[in-house]
Write a protein that binds this DNA or RNA. Structure first.
Lengths: 132, 132
DNA sequence: ATGCAGGTTCCAGTTACTGGAAGGTCAAGA
DNA sequence: TCTTGACCTTCCAGTAACTGGAACCTGCAT
């Protein structure tokens, strides 16, 4: 199967699939013409990657998950550890964003947003006493 | 004032301050010896940048905010628009992360995490029927 | 024969820094 | 005076994960 079809079936852009080959996440066969030739195994792998990336795993984590997936003697504890670490990371990011959201929401509320120049948002950024 | 002091007072690493000069966010004077010489104006600008970046504004948005800040005839509506756009972006990111969090939490719960190889997390990634 | 879709490689750009090498400057102490 | 160490300079490369584009090749249909 050519890269275009693999792209369609995996939900990944062809560019990304080529990139994944560059960094050795997949290694499709090559036809006589030099075209990449994807097996359904390859496509399965690509779909795995697409889902794992979509769940927020980094490419290196995906590599790790793929190797666990391939290892028939893996321990589910190892997979769970990876997922738990990612979950903690996501929790942390959410907390951080929520804190920013709060501050920003506050500032946006405080700004009248009209044609006048005075603005609590700029005041805050420039280090005046914070808006209450 | 040398870059080390400017760094300390602004809360930004010296490396970052040099980078901000590269991309023309600040333009300190230079001493005879070639050292950068920061005025309190410059440091104020750096603190502004430090705070704005901390609030999640991109460097380009910071540039825009700085130019609004410098413009005495600005309209606060313009500032508010930038902040509101950022807020929407943050809202969106949070929603996305919360959705990931939910899925991942679900999967982590479903995985017994012991020495056995079977694992609902890998099942999900590999495209089996989702865990219920 | 020709056109076009789709394949190939390779290089550069994105964001916002960060690390490191090689070397210049300054102030203090022996 | 010399040296040492902290601090400064520039420049180059690397990070994460692609993405865009150029230049070129292949396959298929008209």
């Amino acid at each position: 199967m050519n890269i275009g079809d693999a792209a369609e079936r995996s939900g990944l852009p062809a560019k990304t699939i080529r990139y994944y080959e560059d960094i050795r996440l997949v290694k499709p066969a090559r036809g006589e013409n030099g075209y990449r030739d994807y097996s359904s195994e390859d496509v399965h792998r690509l779909r795995f990657l697409q889902r794992a990336r979509g769940l927020g795993f980094s490419v290196e984590e995906c590599r790790q998950l793929l190797s666990l997936y391939a290892d028939k003697r893996r321990e589910s504890a190892d997979v769970k550890a990876v997922a738990e670490a990612k979950l903690i990371e996501i929790d942390r990011k959410i907390a951080e964003l929520v804190s920013l959201q709060k501050t920003l929401r506050h500032l946006v509320h405080a700004c009248h947003g009209d044609e006048r120049p005075d603005c609590p948002i700029l005041d805050e950024l420039s280090g005046s006493d914070p808006v209450q």
